[in-house]
Design a protein around this nucleic acid. Structure first.
Lengths: 202, 202
DNA sequence: CCGATACGCAACTGTACCGTTTCGAAAGTC
DNA sequence: GACTTTCGAAACGGTACAGTTGCGTATCGG
């Protein structure tokens, strides 16, 4: 062994890549994605300018805009809610609360909205976000609903898929509605109680 | 009176503007708005090319892209549903059906989605669409819900605003969901029945 | 037919961005 | 100190679009 640098991961020679620069680039990308309202509005030049970084520094790490955005979106992932409460009502409220909290982060919502709005142009991006972020969260809610049916708390003929659309759709729509202001903190409980009890009298 | 052309509306001399061209321009604008997934994706050049029209013909009628898009969106307006059925259930289903039909027109949904997604960039567009298209439809549903409460069909403590978010949000979200396919024809009835009866057993 | 206007088309200037390259300086290892 | 790689900055050619202008033609009224 003539090498003394065989430590572990074979650190390459030369100046190491700045971690600060990488973070600044990702942050700037998300900022622009949220502000410009679309993937098309994000330009490498704008990202570089906002991050206080040379374009070289970006192109050294990512081959193009799509790859940068994909990596940036990964930084948005939040841990899945894992409710195992005593009742369906509490499980659903916990999940809905996590949704509302997510949607209260304006930057986060705007990023997802921007990406999903660019479906025709960047199908790969949309497919990836759907698979890695949206679908797992939908599954958590479906599982909670199925548990409720099994425990007898929910009507046995409940359409789980439809029920799931109702809860997530309401929150999403409310969060994105123009001019409706921020989602109230108790929105999760109110919607769960409303759909559990039903609109009809008695 | 030396003029014989005083007929009525003082028709200007020269070749009149082609109605066909105007329609082709508006159609092309909406097509692009839906396909490109954003206001930014619509370029006058692309509109002209798709409409089979010279750029001059566009600029003669509209001063810029925003004005063109505003006028084009006006062509999307559909008549308001005006339900006065025998029961709240039928009223809500009628309104929901109109929503679903609207959302089944992919071009129409994509156009609104595109515009609303450009909120930060083009606030005037968003404000206008919200005021002239969305809010009147929301009001129709609120009115139906209030009638239901007054008639005793709906529980008196029902949160009308929340109920309205639930129904419209579910349809909108379902229509826009990636990879979920077209909204089924019976979606309107299923959602109304589900929220009327509630999820809970008995 | 004449004048006026609109038509589609092409050419033009100006701006913005892409993706690449070059540069001198900085920051690490040996 | 020698070497390697990254850093931010600047410049480059290429593409796309905005908005304008000129041109020959078409279509209206008188």
């Amino acid at each position: 062994m003539t090498h003394t640098t065989d430590q572990c991961s074979a650190r390459p020679p030369g100046r190491p890549r700045s971690e600060r620069a990488a973070k600044a680039i990702v942050d700037a990308t998300l900022d622009l994605l949220a502000e410009e309202g679309g993937v098309a509005g994000v330009s490498i030049e704008a990202v570089a300018a906002r991050a206080g970084v040379g374009k070289t520094t970006i192109y050294r790490r990512w081959p193009n805009k799509e790859a940068l955005i994909i990596d940036a979106l990964a930084a948005l992932k939040e841990p899945l809610p894992e409710p195992r409460g005593v009742s369906v009502r509490e499980d659903l409220i916990a999940i809905a609360r996590a949704f509302v909290a997510d949607k209260s982060d304006k930057k986060r919502v705007d990023c997802y909205w921007s990406v999903l709005g660019s479906a025709e142009r960047y199908p790969e991006l949309v497919e990836r976000v759907t698979r890695e972020v949206i679908e797992p969260r939908r599954e958590v809610m479906r599982a909670a609903l199925r548990r409720g049916i099994a425990s007898g708390e929910l009507r046995p003929d409940l359409d789980v898929e439809l029920a799931q659309w109702i809860i997530t759709g309401t929150i999403t729509h409310r969060a994105r509605a123009a001019g409706a202001g921020p989602v109230p903190v108790d929105f999760a409980e109110r919607i769960v109680d409303a759909v559990l009890a039903g609109f009809a009298a008695h």
